[in-house]
Nucleic acid binder design. Sequence first.
DNA 1: GTCTATAGGAAGATAGAC
DNA 2: GTCTATCTTCCTATAGAC
Lengths: 194, 194
Amino acid sequence: MADRQALILEAAVRVIARNGVRGLRVEELATEAGVSTALIYYHFKDRAGLVQRTLAFISDRATGYTDEAVEDSEDARAVLLQLLLSELQDTPRVRENSIAWGELRASAIFDTDLREALAESTRNWTRDTAEAVADAQAAGLADLAAVPLDVAERLNALVEGLSERWLSGSLELARARALLEGAVDAELGPHPGR
Amino acid sequence: MADRQALILEAAVRVIARNGVRGLRVEELATEAGVSTALIYYHFKDRAGLVQRTLAFISDRATGYTDEAVEDSEDARAVLLQLLLSELQDTPRVRENSIAWGELRASAIFDTDLREALAESTRNWTRDTAEAVADAQAAGLADLAAVPLDVAERLNALVEGLSERWLSGSLELARARALLEGAVDAELGPHPGR
DNA sequence: GTCTATAGGAAGATAGAC
DNA sequence: GTCTATCTTCCTATAGAC
């Protein structure tokens, strides 16, 4: 399945998750991916191109892994909560993605070229979350006065904030999750079914 | 007043705000501060030491500038709101601080040595915010069921999330501010006085 | 497309004078 | 404490063979 380029990109995400974008060394990536440095330059032109492609890659697959363990939730509101909580899990996969995602956002502050991919991915995530909010409302499990798009944008931004605090060691994971649950309650009103 | 070290640290914050920790070049800093590179190594031993001291410096002064234009607010709830909104302003000062702060947090993910200063500064900010929440409650301007510490931690994490989105160009400043106001309403209940 | 080997340069760090 | 000049290391990037 995966061609060489994809293998390199996946390895790049791992290396970035380990050392950050700034800590990405082409040679270390080559080792991680099991290829030569020359091949990396062949496929990605230069380091900047590599970073850009990697961050676009992160941005793409960011939407992918959330739906996995979510669909078997009880009600629409639980689906929303799971969707959000899926970003706050101590698994290699989530850690890797969250760190890389944070690096993408941090890099975009200084590198305008990265912003478009970032903004689009952010919009997609907001849309998905807003739909989940609307579903909860339709099911009678959320305050109808809440504006789905606003709530979604707030909750997602909160997840990012909490995630960064967790990853940078200023917040326990369990506490982050509890705080997030509290935010959902504050935004949607207390869960009727409990 | 300011000795050479402080001048260098202040210049370092500017350079970091411009290029990120990743983009900090000792020689550029030397130019910015109007000193030689050798002096920087003399005072800070090496680049890592420089970065660490700079981030501690950021962490220190982070608490400083919020109270300036806040105290003349009408009521306790307005004080809280101003406290939070002060991080979402398009002034050089706030931009510089927010970017540097974000860089600090991002760096702490990969550098354990930075975490202590970060965590302490975060705690201080949480405490201040929690006090503002409690004040609003005492004044009858906030839902008494809200847990000040929880609300504070959520609002602060949200501010960071919104700030990053703003700085990385995925969110308009005005929208970020509006979203934040909405979050305060969701957390404390609608403002009684309006 | 992929490798080995290496050129070339940028940035971190130091020696030594003042 | 501070500078100028320079060294050294590390890392990006390419040349050339397969």
